[in-house]
């Protein structure tokens, strides 16, 4: 049986809102370690990988592995019914055909209970090895979101160039071009404002902005985004959770 209680419903709300436009049907795999999701978008360009570690929950038990096949659009509708500050408990039997969501208002005795019918979802699971990337950058997630939104007004593609002392975002379109250059900086008082670059090799990679527009929906999950890039391989965009992560692997664009 699964019973996982979030101190605040807002975390699961943010997670679902962050991925529901990238993938619609996905399996939430629950184990003693927490909940994981891996799913690929319909165009097979973007892979979503989520881990909500058991330490995120104020109470968590899952005796044996349970798979919840969820339609995220329906899940999002139900989850919006709860208040951000409510306790949220997910409950499912061992071989469930539904999952129950219980919202408890902390300021009153109100308890709201919803159940979502589950689906049999047959998805392919990809093996993702840890790899050494040419460059790893860390920057404020909100700045990355703004840069990508600004440059998406000009082009469908975002070019990212990384050297040891700068990160350059570029977009070239029919109506004009744009670029934003960032330099590494350490902010001791506000570490979340810092920008760091770790470089093994210079990077020049290009990505579809329509996918990046979906990725930056994770911005509210973390003050910082970690971007790991190697030339001619998928980039990893990561928002860290208190325990776990939301990762997006995005295939680049390049000449064959």
């Amino acid at each position: 049986m699964l019973e996982g209680k979030f101190e605040e419903a807002s975390l699961l709300k943010k997670v679902v809102e962050s991925i529901k436009d990238s993938v619609q049907l996905c399996n939430f795999v629950c184990s003693e370690h927490g909940i994981t999701v891996q799913a690929v978008d319909d165009s097979r360009v973007l892979l979503v990988s989520l881990l909500i570690g058991n330490e995120v929950f104020s109470d968590y038990r899952c005796d044996r592995n349970i798979t919840l096949g969820v339609d995220l659009k329906s899940f999002a509708k139900i989850i919006r019914c709860g208040g951000n500050d409510d306790y949220l408990t997910l409950i499912a039997e061992d071989s469930p055909d539904s999952v129950t969501l219980v919202f408890e208002d902390k300021n009153s005795d109100r308890i709201s209970e919803y159940s979502l019918k589950l689906m049999e979802i047959d998805n392919e699971f990809l093996k993702i090895d840890d790899m050494d990337y040419d460059s790893v950058i860390k920057m404020p997630s909100i700045d990355f979101q703004k840069i990508c939104r600004d440059l998406s007004t000009l082009s469908e593609s975002l070019q990212i160039l990384i050297t040891k002392d700068s990160i350059k975002f570029m977009a070239e379109g029919e109506t004009g071009n744009g670029s934003v250059i960032l330099k590494p900086r350490t902010d001791i008082d506000k570490p979340e404002q810092s920008i760091t670059v770790k470089l093994n090799n210079a990077v020049n990679s290009t990505f579809g902005l329509k996918y990046i527009a979906d990725i930056v929906k994770g911005t509210s999950l973390s003050n910082q985004i970690v971007i790991k890039i190697s030339n001619r391989t998928p980039a990893l965009f990561e928002y860290k959770l208190q325990s776990g992560y939301l990762r997006f692997y995005l295939a680049p664009k390049f000449e064959d």
Binding site: F125, L126, K127, I128, Y249, K253
Partner: peptide, 14 residues
């Protein structure tokens, strides 16, 4: 021209 690559070209299925 640059072509959008497919994620399945980089990761193998389990």
């Amino acid at each position: 021209t640059k072509k959008q690559q497919n994620i399945f070209s980089f990761f193998s299925k389990l």
